[in-house]
Lab assay of single mutants.
Amino acid sequence: EDYYQILGVPRNASQKEIKKAYYQLAKKYHPDTNKDDPKAKEKFSQLAEAYEVLSDEVKRKQYDA
């Protein structure tokens, strides 16, 4: 799945936009606030993985290549 789609940001998003999108979605899908939703944990880990790659310039360049 596309990391940009997961975070809901365009491919040319700035680091600030990526961070903002991640924090909004992380708050929304955090397992502690969605105890009754088994998919929230999965969504949250996808968000974390996408953010880890896109927030790191080197990893992001490799991902975009």
Rank of each mutant, 00 (worst) to 15 (best):
E1S: 14
E1V: 14
E1A: 11
E1K: 09
E1Y: 12
D2T: 08
Y4P: 00
Y4E: 01
Q5Y: 13
Q5C: 14
Q5D: 10
Q5R: 08
I6H: 03
I6D: 02
I6T: 07
L7N: 00
L7W: 00
G8Q: 10
G8E: 07
G8A: 07
V9F: 00
V9R: 01
V9G: 00
P10G: 12
P10S: 13
P10N: 11
R11M: 05
A13K: 00
A13G: 04
S14A: 05
Q15K: 12
K16C: 11
K16I: 15
E17S: 08
I18W: 01
I18G: 00
K19L: 14
K19S: 15
K19G: 07
A21W: 03
A21T: 04
Y22G: 01
Q24Y: 15
A26F: 14
A26C: 10
K27Q: 14
K28H: 08
K28Y: 08
K28Q: 14
Y29R: 05
H30E: 10
H30W: 12
D32Y: 02
D32E: 11
D32K: 09
T33N: 13
T33Y: 15
T33E: 12
N34P: 06
N34W: 12
K35M: 14
K35H: 15
K35W: 09
K35V: 11
D36Y: 11
P38Y: 07
P38T: 07
K39P: 04
K39M: 12
K39Q: 11
K41F: 13
K41E: 10
K41M: 15
K41A: 15
K41L: 14
E42C: 10
F44Q: 05
S45H: 12
S45P: 04
S45N: 11
Q46S: 10
L47Y: 06
E49Q: 10
E49N: 07
A50G: 02
Y51C: 03
Y51F: 13
E52V: 07
V53S: 03
V53T: 14
L54C: 02
L54P: 00
S55H: 05
S55A: 07
S55G: 15
D56N: 06
E57V: 12
E57R: 05
V58H: 10
V58T: 11
R60C: 02
R60A: 01
R60E: 01
R60Y: 01
K61H: 09
K61P: 03
Q62W: 12
Y63P: 02
Y63G: 02
D64G: 02
A65D: 15
A65L: 10
